[in-house]
C-alpha cells in the first residue's frame, strides 16, 4: 500500500518528466533520477523542488539538496516523507 506522499510524488514526477499516466507506477526505490534521466537539468530540478513544496506543503532548504537526494526515487521519497512527518 503506497502512502499519500508516495502517490503525490509519483504524480509530481509524472508532470515534470511528461510521463504517460501509470509510467511512474513502475518506479522502485532504486530507480535512478538525476543523472539517469537526461531531462533533469538544474532548472527542472528547481521546478521539481518548488512543486514538491507546494503540493506536499513542506519547505526544502537549499543545503538539504544534494546529489544523493536526487539519485534515486527511494531517496527522494524518504526525504519527502520525513519532511511531512516533521511538518
Amino acid at each position: 500500500m503506497r502512502s499519500h506522499t508516495d502517490k503525490q510524488l509519483r504524480r509530481i514526477l509524472t508532470d515534470v518528466l511528461g510521463l504517460k499516466p501509470g509510467q511512474a507506477d513502475d518506479f522502485g526505490a532504486d530507480t535512478g533520477l538525476f543523472g539517469h534521466l537526461p531531462e533533469l537539468d538544474s532548472m527542472a530540478v528547481a521546478g521539481l523542488l518548488t512543486e514538491m513544496e507546494d503540493r506536499l506543503d513542506i519547505v526544502i532548504e537549499d543545503d538539504e539538496v544534494d546529489g544523493e537526494l536526487l539519485e534515486t526515487y527511494g531517496n527522494l521519497l524518504a526525504f519527502a516523507e520525513a519532511k511531512r512527518e516533521a511538518a
Partner: peptide, 17 residues
C-alpha cells in the same frame, strides 16, 4: 515570489554543480 524562488534555486543548484 514563487517564480523567483525557483529561478534562484536553479542558480544555487547549477553553481553547486
Amino acid at each position: 515570489a514563487s517564480l523567483l524562488r525557483t529561478l534562484i534555486r536553479a542558480r544555487v543548484l547549477s553553481s553547486r554543480d
